[in-house]
Write a protein that binds this DNA or RNA. Structure first.
Lengths: 124, 124
DNA sequence: TCAAAATATAAGTATTGACTTATATAAGTG
DNA sequence: CACTTATATAAGTCAATACTTATATTTTGA
């Protein structure tokens, strides 16, 4: 599933906010040199496996990250957390900041919004 | 990679400690109804992709979780941590406990050691 | 040193999966 | 309406992958 680099990349883009299928077809299609249907098929898989949510906006379909499935992956990793050193250093910062609000970029196609500000994990 | 249920299951078993290739072939082979070579091939993939480490013990090969690759997956998930509610409640406990030491079950084949005690994440 | 045990590799096959082009469907727009 | 835009689906192809059985390799122990 997420072994596929195209799908991973799609989610990375969606981590920055909502994007239309067309915008994704442009960005991802260009990056990987694949067609619109190819991207659309990846979107279908992501949708069906619960990694994304979609809402209609006229003829467009706006995709966004759906937490559930990714969270499940995260939960699965719990059993291995004891195997690597944790990053407690970032904790204070994170606690102070509180839970970060998500932006809702309605589309954005070619336009690049730059890297997301540091949303980071702390780990156990 | 980890989209494969057999490989995920192998790692789950290894999360409880070291197991020989034969023990894994028994457990996994039985659970999934596949042959020794099939399991061995999965072990090869996991090894080559850096998810496991192996050491020799006579004719046996003892497999264990290799943190690096899984940790990378965990790091990748960082960018999505803002999308789901965090479990800060577990933090105190975890801090108090300090980093959990890993057991080294030398094999264990059919014998089931029961669930690992709660090794949990806290998240950002 | 030879047979058995533990594991890996080889070679073949069937399924899955990631694309392609072509086309269907649905929604704006003149 | 007809045309265009936005997206999804269909159908086919090719490569990757997850098995199988058979066998090679290494180690141990009688």
């Amino acid at each position: 599933m997420l072994g596929d680099p195209v799908r991973r990349r799609i989610l990375e883009v969606l981590a920055r906010g909502e994007h239309s299928a067309g915008a994704l077809a442009d960005v991802i299609g260009t990056e990987f040199g694949i067609s619109q249907p190819a991207v659309s098929q990846h979107l279908r898989v992501l949708r069906e496996q619960g990694f994304t949510q979609v809402r209609a906006d006229g003829a467009r379909r706006l995709y966004a990250v759906a937490p559930a499935a990714l969270r499940e992956a995260d939960a699965w990793l719990d059993q291995f957390r004891g195997f690597w050193p944790q990053r407690l250093d970032a904790l204070g910062t994170e606690l102070a900041r509180g839970q970060r609000e998500r932006r809702q970029l309605v589309d954005g196609a070619a336009r690049d919004e730059g890297p997301p500000e540091g949303r980071q994990s702390v780990g156990a």
